Amino acid sequence: MIETDPAAPTFSFPRSARLRQPSEFQAAFAEGRRLHGTCFRLHVRPHPAGRARLGVSVSRRVDLRAVVRNRIKRLAREVFRHAAPGLAPGDYVLVAKREAAAALRAGNAAAVREELRRLFARCPSLKPGEAGGTMPASTPDAADALAPPSSDS
């Protein structure tokens, strides 16, 4: 029987650290803030409770070969696992671009890892999102000022 050292680091990526439901991905796309890189687009949807969770989307448009798509996902999970302790709780969705597959096919996995590290390092600089829309929330005083004058005379 193989004995494991309880003090040894674990290299797993637990289910609680993953986005699994399509609705979770859709919420991150709809409500999240975006960061763009050469090989990836990152959608960040912060929420105060919980932990940092990752979802990775690599379509067949990125590369037809599943081997390459799966390698992109493994690299993304590895970098996220190391970056997660320094990230705010929220949902992080990575969308791969064709350039990620091209870099891996060219044997440049280090450049892909470095870009992922840079994207995750830029996450704390994101401004908090508004409640929705581009117009500022109206205040009761502003609503009164815009109301037509009453004819109580």
Rank of each mutant, 00 (worst) to 15 (best):
F40E: 10
A76G: 01
N108C: 10
A83M: 13
R51F: 00
F40V: 04
N108F: 06
P48T: 10
A96W: 03
G32T: 09
R60M: 09
G32C: 10
S57P: 03
V44N: 03
N108R: 15
F120W: 12
R61E: 11
Y92V: 05
P128G: 07
G55P: 03
Q26K: 14
R69I: 09
D63L: 07
R113G: 08
N70Q: 11
P46L: 07
P46R: 15
R122E: 14
G129W: 05
A111E: 11
A109V: 00
A109H: 12
Q26A: 15
R69G: 14
A88G: 09
P89E: 00
G86W: 02
L87E: 09
K73W: 07
L116R: 03
L104D: 05
A102H: 09
R71G: 02
G107N: 08
A84N: 05
D91A: 10
A96F: 00
A76P: 02
L116E: 03
D91R: 08
A84C: 09
F29C: 10
K73P: 05
A66G: 08
L75Y: 02
V58N: 12
A111G: 09
L54T: 03
R122K: 14
R45D: 05
E115P: 11
A102D: 01
H82S: 15
C39Q: 06
L116I: 12
A28M: 12
G86S: 10
D63N: 12
G50E: 04
G86E: 15
V56G: 14
V44Y: 13
A66H: 04
H36A: 15
H47R: 12
L119T: 11
A84V: 07
L54Y: 02
A121Q: 13
E115A: 12
S59K: 11
P89T: 06
G90R: 07
P22G: 07
G32A: 13
V56I: 15
C123Q: 12
G90Y: 04
V112E: 01
R81Q: 06
H82N: 11
E114T: 15
A106W: 00
